[in-house]
Computed example of a mutant assay.
Amino acid sequence: MTAVDALIWLATVAAPLGGLAALLLGTQRLYGRRRFVVGTALLGAIAFVPALLLEGFLQRWQGLDKVAGTLDAVTLIYLFVVVAPLEQGLKVAAVAPMARLRTVDEPFDGLVYAAAAALGFVSAHNAMYLWGRPLSSIDVVRAALAVPAHLFFASLWGYALGRERKRPLGGRRFNAAWLAAMLLNGAYDYIVFACRPVALFIAAPMLLGVGFVTFLAARDLLRRSASPHSSQRRERRFLPHISPPSLGTMREALRRTERPLMLSWIAFGALVTVGVMTTTLALAVALGHRFGVDFAAVDRGDASTAAAAPLLLLVAAAIAAFPFAGYLVARASSTGSVLEPAASAALAILGSLVLLGLAAPVAVVFATALAPIAFSLACAGAWIGTTR
């Protein structure tokens, strides 16, 4: 390992520790539980050791390699059935002592402890992943993306931990959040490690979407603090100058209004969504051919911008269809709720996943990773349509 490689290794290991330091500054001002947060981060780092040993044993035993860049069903099953549940389960185990000691006094504590465990885990992960190998740009990007990925995925069940303080581990909300984090973790690992390097471009919008959900979850937990005045003060310190709709407002928009559920508009809206998505994809292909974009570069596995350009163009076109379709369905149905447009978007996404599963099963992983973003954008478009 050269001096430059050593500096890069140190930076990737120190990045999660920097995030932990920022977390400590915030938690010290808010709750004064520095030792608990540090202890959880240390447990998170220690929890990576059994994951490393077990994954290494299974990879040697079965000849698996999750970073081989091969698109096969065995690697897919290994990542979803072994790696993702193991990593998320060990992070929960790192938080379990604090939950059992009843140190989760405030709603925001659950998110703090989950984030601390994730940052400790990913710091150890990056240290072992990059140690002793000639570093390439792909390895560095993978290590850099791992920091927000582990943080955001753990924050999903950390939010549930803060909401269910009386039954912190094993509640219905916690189990659902942990399952979602596990599935996203498996999809992320498959996209970033098992696929070709060009697939890294898909991980960025996926992490942005999960990060936005984490942001909304943090705002919601801050609002649930014991004192309204302290809640407002905490929110200003942690999340200043940004005021998107809260999770409560979004849940209210998804509830049924006085009008009965319009099943016909759900079915029609799904067809509209598919039609708009087909149109945007066709326009993207036409635009790509107009400017000489080589779509066959994706199949050839080129690791250059020649393969990244068509992939980004198609992904952007598919995602851009959902807010526009949600807006159209909301305006056409004249409903005061986002429920019908959201259900139609979910139906269109489900249909797309089924068709992709029949045509190209590997593509289902990519579609699953982008599905939450598409659904959120459809709801946002419908929100605009209902308020105009």
Rank of each mutant, 00 (worst) to 15 (best):
M1V: 15
A6P: 14
A6W: 15
L20P: 05
G26Y: 15
R29T: 14
L30R: 13
G32M: 00
V49Y: 12
A51G: 06
G69F: 05
A73P: 03
T75M: 13
L79P: 04
Q88L: 07
P97F: 02
R100K: 03
A118P: 09
H125Q: 13
A127E: 00
G132C: 11
I138L: 04
L145C: 15
A146S: 07
A146N: 02
H150T: 13
A154Y: 08
R167W: 09
L169V: 13
N185K: 12
F193I: 01
R196W: 05
M206Y: 09
L208P: 04
F212N: 05
T214F: 09
F215I: 06
L216E: 06
R223E: 08
S225E: 13
R236Q: 10
F238Y: 08
L239M: 13
L239E: 05
I242K: 15
L247S: 05
T249Q: 11
T249A: 11
R255V: 08
T257P: 09
L263D: 06
W265Q: 06
V276E: 00
T279I: 01
L281P: 11
V285D: 08
A286T: 01
A320P: 07
G326C: 01
A330P: 02
S333P: 08
P341I: 02
S352T: 14
V354A: 12
L356Y: 06
A369D: 06
P372C: 06
